[in-house]
Amino acid sequence: MKASSVPAAVAVVVPARNEEESLPRCLAALDEAGRALADAYPSVALSVTVVLDGCTDASARVVAEYPVAQPLAVDFASVGLARRAGVAHAVAQLGQPASQIWVANTDADTEVPGQWLVEQCRLAASGVELILGTVVPNPVGLDAALERAWHAAHPLDDGHDYVHGANLGFRADSYLAVGGFAALDIHEDADLIARLKSLGVRWAAVDSIRATTSARTTGRTSGGFAGYLRDLPL
């Protein structure tokens, strides 16, 4: 895409593994973000792919209740492979050149802000190829000491050095140039970002698209955000 032009299409990819309780809030937030995108950039096509990775609960039924989203059923038990499959599916469905597609990533237990997609398109139009957003744990039910420990370790500002798969965007052609998400169960986001930065893409770390994610301390994998939150020194 040319500098000073918005993407022709935006693909949102959401991996989910037995997330029937969290998905309604996630998809409602994405619906709001999609409506804001349509208002700000009516020419931009939008797809939302929820990758149902080995789900045995009612996640598929939840997705069916939200016209904004389409399901993609896989059985990898790997967040890296789930994200990879979701991106490939979305890019193929949109039918645009990869250079004209922006991929926005979040998680099924995360709620993005209303301007999430608008701000990513604005930055993409300025020539940014990779956006790293901030994430905060949902304070509802979160132990106060643990919440303080989180914020002490994560000052929220532009120029941060955090990588969260729950709040991440990139241009599809840059993503494809480095081989996409790897088959990793954890840290697939950090692995991809390291390769994108090594490629020399123009990137921005911003707090303007701050997302709220589950504060659970038992996650769907043995590591990841939940494990990190659980193990924070108080």
Results as ranks from 00 to 15, higher is better:
residue 144 A to S: 14
residue 121 C to D: 09
residue 122 R to P: 00
residue 142 L to V: 05
residue 150 W to Q: 01
residue 147 E to V: 00
residue 120 Q to E: 14
residue 91 V to N: 13
residue 138 N to K: 13
residue 112 V to S: 04
residue 106 T to G: 12
residue 129 E to K: 15
residue 121 C to M: 09
residue 92 A to T: 02
residue 125 A to G: 07
residue 109 D to G: 01
residue 130 L to G: 10
residue 121 C to H: 09
residue 140 V to C: 13
residue 104 A to E: 15
residue 85 A to F: 09
residue 143 D to W: 07
residue 86 G to H: 08
residue 116 W to C: 01
residue 99 S to H: 08
residue 91 V to M: 09
residue 127 G to T: 10
residue 135 V to N: 07
residue 125 A to E: 06
residue 98 A to Y: 05
residue 149 A to D: 11
residue 149 A to P: 14
residue 118 V to M: 05
residue 142 L to R: 03
residue 86 G to C: 06
residue 101 I to L: 09
residue 146 L to M: 01
residue 116 W to Q: 00
residue 117 L to C: 03
residue 105 N to G: 07
residue 92 A to L: 02
residue 133 G to W: 10
residue 93 Q to D: 07
residue 109 D to F: 02
residue 90 A to N: 01
residue 122 R to V: 13
residue 104 A to G: 13
residue 128 V to E: 13
residue 126 S to N: 11
residue 148 R to L: 15
residue 96 Q to T: 10
residue 94 L to C: 04
residue 112 V to I: 02
residue 129 E to T: 15
residue 126 S to K: 13
residue 94 L to S: 06
residue 150 W to E: 04
residue 116 W to M: 00
residue 147 E to D: 14
residue 92 A to P: 03
residue 103 V to L: 08
residue 102 W to N: 07
residue 121 C to K: 14
residue 107 D to A: 05
residue 125 A to L: 04
residue 94 L to I: 02
residue 106 T to P: 07
residue 95 G to C: 06
residue 139 P to R: 08
residue 89 H to Y: 02
residue 87 V to K: 09
residue 110 T to Y: 00
residue 108 A to R: 01
residue 126 S to W: 07
residue 112 V to M: 01
residue 118 V to N: 05
residue 145 A to F: 15
residue 133 G to V: 07
residue 148 R to Q: 12
residue 89 H to L: 01
residue 112 V to E: 03
residue 143 D to Y: 13
residue 108 A to V: 00
residue 111 E to M: 12
residue 105 N to K: 12
residue 116 W to E: 00
residue 119 E to H: 04
residue 85 A to S: 14
residue 112 V to D: 03
residue 139 P to E: 06
residue 142 L to Q: 03
residue 118 V to G: 11
residue 140 V to E: 15
residue 120 Q to F: 08
residue 144 A to T: 13
residue 133 G to I: 09
residue 135 V to Y: 07
residue 89 H to R: 05
residue 140 V to P: 06
residue 146 L to R: 00
residue 138 N to H: 15
residue 96 Q to M: 10
residue 107 D to V: 02
residue 113 P to Y: 10
residue 144 A to F: 08
residue 98 A to T: 13
residue 119 E to S: 07
residue 119 E to L: 02
residue 91 V to R: 06
residue 149 A to H: 11
residue 102 W to R: 11
residue 144 A to N: 08
residue 89 H to G: 00
residue 130 L to V: 10
residue 112 V to W: 01
residue 137 P to A: 04
residue 109 D to Q: 06
residue 108 A to I: 01
residue 122 R to H: 12
residue 124 A to R: 09
residue 112 V to G: 02
residue 128 V to H: 08
residue 94 L to E: 02
residue 105 N to F: 12
residue 93 Q to M: 12
residue 105 N to T: 11
residue 134 T to R: 09
residue 104 A to F: 06
residue 131 I to F: 06
residue 139 P to W: 00
residue 105 N to Q: 15
residue 91 V to T: 14
residue 125 A to Y: 05
residue 110 T to Q: 02
residue 117 L to T: 03
residue 92 A to K: 05
residue 89 H to Q: 04
residue 92 A to V: 04
residue 94 L to M: 06
residue 145 A to N: 13
residue 127 G to H: 08
residue 107 D to W: 02
residue 85 A to N: 11
residue 111 E to C: 11
residue 99 S to K: 07
residue 108 A to Y: 01
